[in-house]
Nucleic acid binder design. Structure first.
Lengths: 259, 259
DNA sequence: AATCTTGTTACTATAATAGTAGTAACATTA
DNA sequence: TAATGTTACTACTATTATAGTAACAAGATT
């Protein structure tokens, strides 16, 4: 064993890699599929998968042996969600601001090149049907833009290498030059603006959640408004202080939690 | 290596055991705590935990080295939740029944001796503040009673060995004899009744979700009503057909999915 | 100031895994 | 129908990852 990684379990990592192959887009996978995708040889894959099946994290259908998530995985999902202290810490802050100002608030956490939906409160005037839990389209959302604006240069180019830029509404900015300019402006401004670029009829402003010690973005918050009732100018005048205050408060909590 | 469990990874199991130590009640744990609780020696625990930390599933605070769930675990929680095909399969059925009859519906899955909340739709007349995701109090809920009624004898005694029976409302049945009688009646009746035994002001009826091939309970559904507006008699007369129909439909789906 | 407890590292025997190879069952194709 | 390809699963052993003991420094507790 190499001396450096003596305190790192390769077997465990392989197991985790297998688990991350299962999600909404891929609820079912075959053994060979798993083996190929993870690069683990078939025997080891079989051993690992078998372990998951025996412990209820995966289950296999009797006929075609397809593998799917088991109840233990679902339970673990629950536990991870509610046992995540960052979530528990942010919730009351957002609830407070929501009740105080009666505005829709969304929050998300950076995980590599995507955002993970953290916690959301919505006003009834907002038609927000089925927002995703995991977002890749950082370029098209207020929460995403402000994260990109605070990415380091390598992080940013890393994102755009893997990103698939496409028009989600007629307002979506898809030209790379325009996107880069927008990101630069967001950085200078300190908060981001989304003018119906993600969902028709919704305009938003977003601010970064920072680790104040490491000076790095760890997430973002946004305030969302129906475009029919609000203008961007009005929002900027009346809500940016609330937004930045909220983002600052969350940043402090999150920093103290050592994210 | 023992020949029988050649295709089972002990290392992976240990890793999973570590992960399940983190939940809402225990968002933070120390290394030695993990080592003691799992029975894994300190060095191995260190190796496993280190792997989780390096991959972002756990994070450790700079000062006291306490371990907490990381963003990767939160993301995985999301994925497990939404990638669980049973959840996706049940959702539209419950939604349909909800919209058709305008009644509050709850569903849960058996995981050992507890129930995992699966999917819920609520009418505005129901004050259901903060129901738990994981339920141990099977004896006090409609969803729980009907599961107990379909447990095998060893499963049932297994539950009561670990269960802590306590009064949650003034109606909660806490006497063991009465509980056993109630379970027997539930079995004969085919559905369970909860008369404000879990939450004051809420009465429910519950039916089992069965694996029709294996003839075993895998979960349950309940219809919940405000006690102020409904009587148990009225519910039994008007809603048991809907309840049993719904449970049957879900059972079929779930069986076909091979839970 | 002394003791206990914490996380972390070094070392090596032992036990677990990787990888090759091969089987039977089933699917797909000719 | 026969031939070929694919699937999950198993047997075997060389390799290597892990378990376990021991020891250490840094904090915490006494």
């Amino acid at each position: 064993m190499a001396n450096k990684d003596q305190y790192f379990s390769k077997t465990l990592e392989k197991g985790l890699n297998i688990l991350t192959l299962f999600n909404r887009e891929h609820p079912s996978r075959s053994l060979t599929e798993i083996s190929k995708l993870t690069g683990i040889n078939k025997t080891s894959t079989y051993r690992l998968v078998n372990t998951f099946v025996q412990r209820g994290y995966l289950r296999k259908s009797a006929d075609n042996k397809a593998l799917r998530l088991g109840t233990k995985a679902f339970a673990l999902g629950h536990e991870f969600f509610h046992g995540f202290d960052i979530y528990q810490g942010i919730k009351p802050i957002i609830d407070k601001t929501f009740l105080e100002h009666k505005i829709s608030i969304d929050s998300a956490l950076v995980d590599g090149n995507r955002l993970i939906s953290l916690y959301r409160r919505e006003m009834p005037n907002l038609v927000h049907y089925h927002l995703p839990m995991l977002m890749d389209e950082l370029y098209a959302r207020a929460m995403g833009k402000v994260v990109l604006a605070h990415f380091t240069q390598p992080e940013l180019s890393g994102y755009f290498e893997s990103a698939r830029i496409e028009a989600l509404t007629e307002n979506t900015i898809t030209d790379m030059e325009a996107i880069r300019k927008e990101i630069a402006e967001t950085r200078n401004r300190g908060y981001s603006i989304n003018n119906e670029e993600y969902i028709q009829g919704i305009i938003s402003v977003g601010a970064p959640i920072m680790n104040l010690q490491k000076k790095s973005v760890v997430g973002s918050v946004s305030l969302d408004f129906p475009a029919t009732e609000y203008s961007i100018e009005y929002i900027q005048q009346n809500f940016t202080n609330i937004l930045l205050g909220l983002a600052g408060e969350i940043s402090e909590i999150v920093t103290s939690m050592g994210i």
